[in-house]
Design a protein around this nucleic acid. Sequence first.
DNA 1: CGATGTGAAGAACTTCACAGCG
DNA 2: CGCTGTGAAGTTCTTCACATCG
Lengths: 244, 244
Amino acid sequence: MSRTTDPPAPARIPEATVARLPVYLRGLAALSEAGLATVSSDILAAAAGVTGAQVRKDLNQLGSYGTRGVGYEVDHLIREINRELGLTAPRSVVLVGVGNLGRALAGYAGFAAKGFRMVALLDRDPTTFGELVGGLAIRPVADLPAVVAEHRVSIGIIATPAAAAQQVCDLLVRLGVSAILNFAPVLLTVAEGVDLRKVDLSVELQILSFHEQRKQRDAGPPGLAAGQPGAVGQPGGSQLVAQR
Amino acid sequence: MSRTTDPPAPARIPEATVARLPVYLRGLAALSEAGLATVSSDILAAAAGVTGAQVRKDLNQLGSYGTRGVGYEVDHLIREINRELGLTAPRSVVLVGVGNLGRALAGYAGFAAKGFRMVALLDRDPTTFGELVGGLAIRPVADLPAVVAEHRVSIGIIATPAAAAQQVCDLLVRLGVSAILNFAPVLLTVAEGVDLRKVDLSVELQILSFHEQRKQRDAGPPGLAAGQPGAVGQPGGSQLVAQR
DNA sequence: CGATGTGAAGAACTTCACAGCG
DNA sequence: CGCTGTGAAGTTCTTCACATCG
């Protein structure tokens, strides 16, 4: 019994796999509605936008739920993935910052469908207090301790302006919320043990922009050195026309 | 005759690096406002939430803009990264689907600040036509060809319901838009050469949920019943309690 | 000396290919 | 025979450590 090492296999699931489980879940839901009882890894892969091998590797990280020669039982797999994601019981979510984006998030039906329950919307602006958004009244941030205590809040969503985000984050953590989804365009820092994810809309656009520009550059040099790699190497002048 | 391979080195920039450039840009903007003229990789790393080595590796993918013993010149670096991201001239963006989320996106000031220009908002619902959102009037999707032709549209954002997303996507691609950011909760398929990114809010929550659940499991086994209440699925389910 | 630039080692993830079970 | 499960190879990304230069 070596205490230092872990001989068995505590089934640590790779982060990359975890990120795909929700995608499989969505594909499985569609297949289930379509009446399919079982799926092969290749079919599920097509529905999720990955390869069959990937699906098989991922799924038997969770245990072996497939039958050789047949595939995976759809409903069973849905249950197992939901269990693995900790979604067998609904999780309570609070949203802080009810501006444009916050309102959209508050009204997003997808959350409820996926096993999340929005329990409170909080803001700092007194003129919004009491306003109903998606069936919930906006409350002052001061209510946060009470809200967290009353419902067992799992996850906090931050949709405040950048300047307020760290402060709100600290408050959430202090109240015991250990998973945070940040939409504010700043880097937040949290204590170890708190799980922080970020969604940044303009970062996504900037990444797309990079690829657009690269396409243009690749397609660009038709007049110059198009015929053959005569322009190979580093041309002396390389100001604006980079030669990637 | 080496037409099949590319012997030199077109300086392909790794995808992981590209994804961090926007983050550096934000950090640099803050440092610039704070009056810093130069930064070391360690300082910039702290501002971006990565390591110093990472920053150095990333930055000299773009060329060598640092000075040993000193660091990087902030303003110069900002320009170089912007150039690499293709953001020296503003890029035109159209948004299709002006529901809750679409409205939030249309009103998001961050886009303009980052060098993007929202040129049109399109929807299918006639009752919204003409309505002003963020200074732009909502137009029918039928106007899309004209819009794309008039402004040189770089990027299309899809914020429609899931059912309409693929159709809108196909239309955008047919009109020549080759970069798409999808907020609809479906897997879209596009022809090769089109760059597609996805933002899925509920996937993020589900990933957080996974980690929450794992924390609970890890913290669970002291003395008390290690098995989950009533959820002991696998009889032979060995060590569900990970020790990490 | 201080901080970059960089080969080399290491870790994480993906793809391949096929053994093996139903 | 079909499809899963899985070692092994391959690829991408990250960390380390230090030579190198201003």
